[in-house]
């Protein structure tokens, strides 16, 4: 068979899988929007609206003081990129890991999609790509929230659209690959544990609520969090959106996102093949 013919078959199958996922998502649009918006909405509401209105609220949030020192804007400016990173990561987990746990479970409903004329690695890749699309939407939803909710305006400034797009796309793909890795390596009945064991730690230690540079006084932690891919998502978005806040070098951020994308995709695809083939 000619290779163009083969690619024709593969690409139609790939698009078919995307269409199926899109249909399923479109039916659950409202729950999807609620899911992605709730976390950033409440975070912004409590930390950038409620607390500043409390007496002494600013003192309760040490980062706010630092944010002010670091170039203006309130805690909202620190949170915007961080909350986008969390939204991206959450979407990866919700779009890939949780459905996979069900599809690999007793129902085995992934079987029909695995049996389509496409290499198994590409079926896994479709999961990552579709999840990345959801991540981009989720990240975009944080913008209007960050504009309307905080009492002090958020200082966002896009110096390079290319950097923003590169970070957004890479971070979204990394989140999908992370979801694939988790979804294929965890037993379906243990998927509930994932939030406690993986999602919460990588969020809190992901430079979401503080810039990486702010960890300078706790050296061991500053080095320790470097194994966490969320750090590079947060820092990358910080570099692209709120450059006045201190951030890691841009080239390093992009390199590390690519590194995690390759690593997690590889592990996730291995896991996927192991789960569908015997």
């Amino acid at each position: 068979m000619k290779s163009e013919q083969r690619w024709g078959i593969y690409s139609r199958a790939f698009l078919g899988l995307m269409r199926r996922d899109l249909r399923v998502l479109s039916r659950e649009l409202v729950p999807f929007l609620v899911r992605v918006a709730m976390n950033p909405l409440l975070f912004l509401f409590v930390f950038t609206y409620v607390m500043p209105h409390m007496s002494g609220g600013a003192k309760m949030s040490p980062v706010a003081g630092m944010a002010a020192a670091g170039g203006g804007g309130g805690f909202g400016t620190v949170l915007l990129p961080g909350l986008m990173a969390v939204a991206i990561m959450f979407s990866g987990i919700a779009a890939v890991a949780l459905p996979l746990a069900q599809e690999f479970g007793i129902t085995r409903e992934i079987d029909d999609r695995v049996m389509c004329p496409l290499p198994i690695a590409a079926v896994a890749m479709e999961k990552i790509v579709f999840s990345a699309i959801q991540s981009v939407i989720a990240a975009a939803l944080v913008f209007p929230l960050a504009y309307y909710v905080p009492s002090t305006p958020v200082l966002a400034h896009v110096s390079s659209w290319w950097l923003l797009i590169a970070v957004l796309v890479l971070a979204s793909l990394v989140a999908g690959a992370l979801g694939l890795t988790i979804g294929t390596s965890v037993q379906p009945k243990q998927i509930g544990l994932i939030f406690g064991v993986v999602v919460v730690p990588i969020t809190f230690l992901g430079c979401v609520y503080y810039p990486w540079a702010a960890l300078g006084h706790i050296r061991w932690l500053q080095w320790g969090v470097l194994v966490n891919p969320i750090v590079y998502m947060s820092e990358g978005l910080r570099a692209a959106l709120t450059p006045s806040m201190g951030h890691m070098p841009e080239a390093l951020i992009l390199a590390m996102l690519v590194f995690f994308l390759v690593l997690l995709t590889w592990v996730g695809m291995k896991g996927f093949a192991r789960r569908v083939l015997s």
């Binding site: 029909d112 999609r113 004329p117």
Partner: peptide
């Protein structure tokens, strides 16, 4: 492309309707 499979267990796509189960299967196959 030359194979159809009905496994022992029910592997219908529970997120899709009866018609969509067939429709999307057709789309997967081009």
């Amino acid at each position: 492309q030359s194979i159809g499979v009905v496994p022992q267990y029910n592997t219908l796509d529970r997120s899709c309707t009866v018609a969509e189960n067939i429709y999307f299967h057709c789309r997967y196959f081009g």
